[in-house]
């Protein structure tokens, strides 16, 4: 009994209960409930404007930055409530890293980009920072390409390298969860496959939630897939099942490319 419970608690990472999101009077998400397992990749798919980004941005409370946005319902992260005013958003965002659609390195050196997170969270020890920077760049599979020019601008990197720099930057604060909003949609096929490989490796240690418009990509990288349509969660299950044997007609139409 006890073991079963710990087993359960270990495997469940994020639990969403009756989540609704409004932008002013427009409702963007309707009553979403969904459990996201730990150390797996969960893909969010669906046509443009269906609320994938809105959903993803609830997990690190980025919607707080939009004055008109209002979030209702519950999100539990490892059993802890993350919505509500009493939650420390800074700590939450430390635990939940995010990678954006368009790579957004700061106009600082590569080193400073990765060191940014640890520094704003109060780390001063130079040796420790150097260690974290190297470690994070290695995890993001960028170390070998940039180790000789750590102090040149992060903006001078190629698109794919910039995106991996942003991943390294997110990893530097040692998050448990990585949110990725179309991380490869602005990249060429080679950089894309590099990012996909990286996701495959990172999921050993991180829970990853990824938004993608690319069906093949979702099928390749994820273990679970959620299909959204016009603010509703239509179907959620094992990726294989969602793609090959969907329960819903809408899902089938979407994954086979009949609309969207």
């Amino acid at each position: 009994m006890v073991t079963a419970q710990t087993q359960e608690a270990h495997e469940l990472c994020i639990s969403v209960k009756n989540l609704s999101v409004f932008y002013g009077d427009n409702q963007a998400l309707f009553d979403i409930s969904m459990d996201i397992p730990e150390k797996e990749v969960t893909a969010l798919i669906g046509p443009s404007g269906c609320g994938k980004s809105t959903f993803l941005r609830c997990f690190n409370r980025m919607n707080d930055l939009i004055p008109s946005a209002r979030v209702e319902g519950e999100i539990l992260l490892k059993g802890n409530q993350i919505l509500g005013n009493s939650v420390d958003v800074v700590t939450l965002r430390k635990r939940v890293g995010m990678v954006f659609q368009r790579s957004n390195p700061f106009p600082k050196s590569i080193f400073e980009n990765v060191a940014y997170g640890p520094k704003i969270h109060g780390l001063r020890d130079r040796n420790k920072i150097e260690e974290i920077v190297e470690d994070s760049l290695k995890k993001a599979d960028l170390w070998n390409e940039v180790k000789d020019r750590l102090h040149t601008s992060g903006i001078g990197l190629s698109g794919g390298q910039q995106q991996r720099l942003c991943i390294a930057r997110a990893l530097a604060v040692e998050p448990q969860i990585l949110l990725m909003d179309e991380p490869a949609s602005a990249l060429d096929p080679r950089s894309t496959s590099k990012i996909e490989e990286l996701i495959g490796v990172l999921k050993e240690n991180y829970t990853i939630v990824i938004v993608t418009h690319n069906m093949q990509q979702a099928a390749r990288v994820s273990q679970k897939t959620a299909f959204f349509y016009e603010g509703y969660l239509i179907e959620y299950g094992e990726t294989e099942q969602v793609f090959q044997n969907p329960n819903e007609k809408q899902t089938e139409d979407y994954v086979t490319g009949r609309f969207g």
Binding site: N60, M62, V90, R93, F100, R169
Partner: peptide
Amino acid sequence: RSLREGSYAMGAT
């Protein structure tokens, strides 16, 4: 805006 968001997402105040 993306730079600001990037910074907020790292947990910056």
